[in-house]
């Protein structure tokens, strides 16, 4: 690679190498200390048990995790949470983006209004919706009563569905902005050609929009699954994982094992298992997405 320049200006190229390493030094230190070292420590800790995590336990924590019903339950509802929020964000985000892609007056304003929740902290989202959904003093139940409908206790009867809804409220705008950029990147000629060939709106959507949007859909879907699998604040702030663990999202569960039960060995193993799951989801999506990608 560097053969030719090396022969001709040996000293210079060596000087640039030194400069490059000098400029990279802070980054090398940072990623070593704050990413790779913690991951090594996580793996080590996960092979230990006891209150100080100093008793070697081999793979015990992992086998315990696999057969722990609370962990299994938490894992299943978290996967449901991530998949439903991802499908929801893609469907709603794409639908809204397609509306905003049309020459409508005020589309810039709509785009802004739909994006606002994405910019709020999960603390705001959590506290606000806990108030709105409150069975006693929440505004939503008053709306229902005003419409002569029976009041609801969503956080008790449908906790998981409710936090999925709250998650979508916050994240659909993000998917919409990405889809809008994707739609604007599709050249008009494809639609014109399809129309000349007699394709109606449904077939243009199916055979032009969807395939050409595949890279955007793939990106939204990967980011959204990762975000969903890592959701924490929704359970911590809105439902406290309840009632009866019905909304015990995985990271919330790990958080409690680590900082309430103070079982660092077990919680480290649980953390690592979720990384493996996230990587597996990402690889599967990339494979599937690449296979369906088209060039233009």
């Amino acid at each position: 690679m560097a053969n030719r320049p090396r022969r001709r200006r040996d000293g210079l190229s060596r000087r640039y190498t030194r400069t490059a390493y000098l400029m990279l030094l802070p980054a090398i230190l940072f990623f070593a200390v704050f990413t790779y070292l913690p991951i090594g420590n996580l793996l080590t800790t996960s092979a230990h048990s006891g209150p100080q995590a100093d008793v070697f336990a081999g793979l015990d924590n992992y086998s315990r995790a696999v057969s722990d019903p609370a962990v299994r339950h938490s894992f299943v509802i978290t996967v449901i949470f991530a998949l439903v929020t991802t499908v929801g964000a893609i469907v709603l985000g794409l639908a809204l983006a397609m509306l905003l892609d049309k020459p409508l007056r005020g589309r810039v304003v709509f785009r802004a209004l739909l994006l606002v929740p994405y910019l709020t902290s999960v603390a705001i989202v959590g506290l606000l919706w806990r108030n709105i959904l409150d069975p006693g003093l929440g505004i939503l139940n008053r709306l229902l009563t005003a419409l002569d409908l029976p009041p609801q206790q969503w956080l008790i009867t449908h906790p998981l569905e409710t936090i999925i809804g709250v998650m979508l409220w916050q994240h659909v705008g993000y998917a919409m902005v990405l889809f809008l950029a994707g739609l604007q990147g599709i050249p008009d000629v494809y639609y014109e050609a399809a129309t000349v060939d007699g394709a109606g709106p449904a077939r243009r959507f199916r055979h032009v929009t969807l395939p050409l949007l595949m890279p955007t859909t793939l990106f939204v879907s990967i980011i959204s699954v990762i975000t969903g699998l890592q959701a924490f604040g929704q359970a911590y702030i809105i439902t406290d994982g309840g009632p009866a663990n019905a909304s015990d999202l995985y990271v919330f569960h790990v958080f409690n094992v680590a900082f309430e039960a103070r079982d660092f060995g077990y919680s480290s193993a649980l953390s690592f298992l979720l990384v493996v799951v996230i990587l597996a989801f990402t690889v599967v999506q990339l494979r599937y997405g690449r296979r369906n990608e088209v060039q233009h």
Partner: peptide
Amino acid sequence: AIPFFVKMIPL
């Protein structure tokens, strides 16, 4: 590819 929560406990 490494989500923050993975580093939460070791950090």
